[in-house]
């Protein structure tokens, strides 16, 4: 959210149709939505995201909730648009042949935080190797900061089902990483470049 503006003010203005509020919400949410769609293999992530936000903005007058609820609602619409995109294309998202060239760069000692870096292409390959539902659960947790309960609502599944999907997704992910990774010591990633490791978002 833009500095100095309370979420409630932005939401109220957006519900009244103010362009600046639309832009504020779009700038705040679009990067994660587009990343979610891209890592799911959407053919045109920008276009699907645009359709998502058109649906969000036109439906905003009926929305009630806080910022967290809005984010969950936005990803609900994004997930549905993604499924529509899959159906239009009548095929699963792009899958990598293998992750054999996956390279993990690590360094430091065991007492420090894990110092590993994964390239963008590697992330795409790892995500493409996961089943759709498992990938959706992991990405919604990492990108959208949604809880298991919120993801259950987004995907229209039970909480237990989402927990099972997360467990299987993590297992599959770990196996692929362990099988194909090549640890290269000596490359240390600065702490400032690792917000996910430090909790700074």
């Amino acid at each position: 959210m833009r500095a100095g503006l309370a979420f409630d003010d932005v939401l109220a203005a957006a519900q009244a149709g103010a362009a600046w509020a639309f832009e504020t919400l779009y700038r705040g949410l679009a990067p994660t939505v587009i990343a979610y769609l891209r890592l799911h293999g959407a053919a045109d992530p920008d276009d699907v995201a645009s359709e998502t936000f058109l649906g969000v903005f036109t439906g905003l007058p009926g929305f009630r909730g806080d910022e967290e609820a809005l984010r969950s609602w936005v990803f609900t619409i994004a997930h549905r648009r993604l499924i529509d995109d899959w159906r239009r294309r009548s095929r699963r998202p792009r899958l990598a042949d293998d992750a054999g060239d996956l390279t993990l760069l690590a360094g430091g000692d065991a007492e420090d935080d894990a110092l590993v870096r994964v390239g963008t292409d590697d992330v795409h390959r790892l995500c493409a190797g996961l089943p759709d539902d498992q990938r959706a659960v992991l990405l919604l947790r990492v990108l959208a900061d949604l809880t298991v309960e919120q993801i259950a609502s987004v995907m229209g599944r039970s909480v237990g089902s989402v927990k099972a999907l997360q467990r299987r997704g993590l297992r599959s992910l770990r196996e692929r990483i362990e099988k194909s990774s090549e640890i290269v010591p000596g490359t240390r990633v600065p702490l400032a470049a690792r917000p996910a490791m430090t909790g700074v978002r």
Binding site: P31, A35, A114, L115, T120, V142, L170, L173, I177
Partner: peptide, 18 residues
């Protein structure tokens, strides 16, 4: 470490405004 790297890279991919 591998999982952490994956999580970090996924978050880092969410920077483009589109």
């Amino acid at each position: 470490a591998g999982l952490a790297a994956f999580t970090e890279a996924v978050r880092a991919s969410a920077t483009r405004p589109g």
